[in-house]
Design a protein around this nucleic acid. Sequence first.
DNA 1: AACGGTTTCAACCGCTCGTGG
DNA 2: ACCACGAGCGGTTGAAACCGT
Length: 220
Amino acid sequence: MGRAPCCDSKNVRRGPWSQEEDALLTKYMLESRGKSGSWIALPHRAGLKRCGKSCRLRWMNYLRPDIKRGRFTEEEDEVICALYLSIGSRWSVIATKLPGRTDNDIKNYWNTKLKKKLTESLLARNLSFPEVKIADHDHPTKSSLNSYRTPFQAAEDELQSSFKKDVNSEMLSASVPATDSDFDSPNTVSNDFASTFWEEEGAYLDFGGRAFFGNFGHLD
DNA sequence: AACGGTTTCAACCGCTCGTGG
DNA sequence: ACCACGAGCGGTTGAAACCGT
């Protein structure tokens, strides 16, 4: 026996949502102020002939009023790349660090553009695309999402606690290899923490003026 | 203008996780 | 401990839009 379907597929609409359906779902969600109860029960209550999962997806990925539209910024690119190299394809975790962006948006953006962009950047440096392997203890749980720190943020935390003084972007950029030759000499970085990070975590990758932490294998 | 290839992104599928009984 | 169920997630698909010839 296969898995039971989540809803009666004969009585639900599929495919693209109509304006009327969007209006019904939006009206219901706004009137209920998010206190919709279960998603399974929502279609019936809202007068929609849709699967609950489909309603959830439509709301979360398209209709929510706080969704950010338009092109991803360089800063967002950097956050996505850094997190992907750090935690892998945990799009929902990455989305929590980019307010207004959905996990689906980020996933699509990564698969269609950013992965290619990063790969080209790596190839230009004679580096191969890193295999991202995350140890279990590195996976943030749902309860720890709010306190989860990206490698950049962790680095900033460490710097702040170590030096007990203002850490500005100038200091952070000083820890990034500025030229190709700097990649071969991690000792040129300007603070102890960055040197330690180099040894323990691998190479820095210059990308769009800033850097990522990760383990990059050299091409033979 | 027509066509074919490519890109984009909304939506679906099937799985795991969390929770309550 | 086990089971059932709903929520949420990541991978994948496919239609629409876009672009080059």
